[in-house]
Design a protein around this nucleic acid. Structure first.
Length: 235
DNA sequence: AATGTGCCCAACCGCGGAACC
DNA sequence: CGGTTCCGCGGTTGGGCACAT
C-alpha cells in the first residue's frame, strides 16, 4: 500500500509537545501544502499524512475547540440529512470546525439517537414549502398544482409577490447557496440558480404580481431534471 | 482502592481521484 | 495514454479518561 510503505520506519501515535512546535514552526515558515516535504523541512520523523492530519485537525489556529453549540448541532443534523457522511462538505459550512470533529461528534452524540434525527426530519419537512415534484404543466392560474399523487400547495402563489431573499427562512437560503448546489449536483446548478434568483427578485422588486414560470421550470430542472435527482427527497 | 465498562477523540488506515511525468 | 506520486477523504482503531461497581 502506498501510504503504508511511505510511513515505514517513522514515529506513530500521540504527538509530543516538541513535535507540535516543530510542525507549527514549519507551517508558519513554508505554509500549508506540499505535505511530502513537511517532515524533512520540520525535522520530524513522521510521515506526511501524520503531519497533515496533526495540523488540520489540531494545530491549525483557525480551529475552534470545545463543545458544539445547539445551532451547530442543528446544522450538522440538517446537512447530514442532505449530504450523508460527506464530513468535509458539512464541515466547510460550520465555521472553524474540522471534518474530523464533525464526524466524531456525529458518531458519539447523534448517530444512535433516533429522537434527535426524527426531530430534525420533522423540522425539515415542516419548513419545506416547495413541492417535491413539479408537474410538467405549470399552472399559472391557481395557488395549487395537481400532480400524480395529489394536490400540493404552490409555494409561490400568484396572489402574492415572490419573497425577497432576506425574508427567507434557512431552507431558501440553502437554495441560493450556489456552492452547495454545485457540489450536490456536480455541475452548474449554482450558476443557474443565481440567474433564476436574479430574475425572480427583479420581478419582486418591480412589484410584478406574478411568479416567474421560468423560475419554476428551472428549479424543477435543477432539482429533478437532467440529473434525475430530487434533493428534497433526500431530506 | 482496585477493577471493569463505556465514551470521547486523536490518530491511523486504505481507498479514490487528481496531478504529474 | 498508462504508470506513478501525491493529496484528501471517510471509516476505523485504540489510548486515556471518567464513572460505576
Amino acid at each position: 500500500m502506498k501510504t503504508k510503505s511511505t510511513c515505514l520506519g517513522v514515529r506513530k501515535g500521540a504527538w509530543t509537545e516538541e513535535e507540535d512546535i516543530l510542525l507549527r514552526k514549519c507551517i508558519e515558515e513554508y505554509g500549508g501544502g506540499n505535505w511530502h516535504l513537511v517532515p524533512q523541512r520540520a525535522g520530524l520523523n513522521r510521515c506526511r499524512t501524520s503531519c497533515r492530519i496533526r495540523w488540520l485537525n489540531y494545530l491549525n489556529p483557525n480551529i475552534k475547540r470545545g463543545d458544539f453549540r445547539s445551532d451547530e448541532v442543528d446544522l450538522i443534523i440538517r446537512l447530514h440529512k442532505l449530504l450523508g457522511n460527506r464530513w468535509s462538505l458539512i464541515a466547510r459550512r460550520i465555521p472553524r470546525r474540522t471534518a474530523n470533529d464533525v464526524k466524531n461528534y456525529w458518531n458519539s452524540h447523534l448517530r444512535d439517537k433516533p429522537v434527535a434525527r426524527e426531530e430534525a426530519v420533522a423540522i425539515t419537512k415542516a419548513m419545506k414549502p416547495r413541492p417535491r415534484r413539479f408537474s410538467n404543466h405549470v399552472d399559472t392560474s391557481n395557488t395549487n398544482q395537481s400532480v400524480g399523487d395529489g394536490t400540493i400547495t404552490n409555494p409561490y402563489p400568484l396572489t402574492s409577490p415572490p419573497p425577497k431573499v432576506d425574508e427567507l427562512p434557512w431552507w431558501d437560503n440553502m437554495v441560493v447557496d450556489t456552492e452547495l448546489i454545485d457540489e450536490c449536483m456536480g455541475g452548474t446548478g449554482g450558476e443557474l440558480i443565481t440567474t433564476l434568483w436574479t430574475d425572480h427578485e427583479a420581478a419582486a422588486t418591480s412589484g410584478v404580481n406574478a411568479r416567474s414560470d421560468s423560475f419554476v421550470h428551472h428549479v424543477k430542472n435543477i432539482y429533478i431534471g437532467d440529473n434525475d435527482v430530487d434533493l428534497w427527497s433526500l431530506l
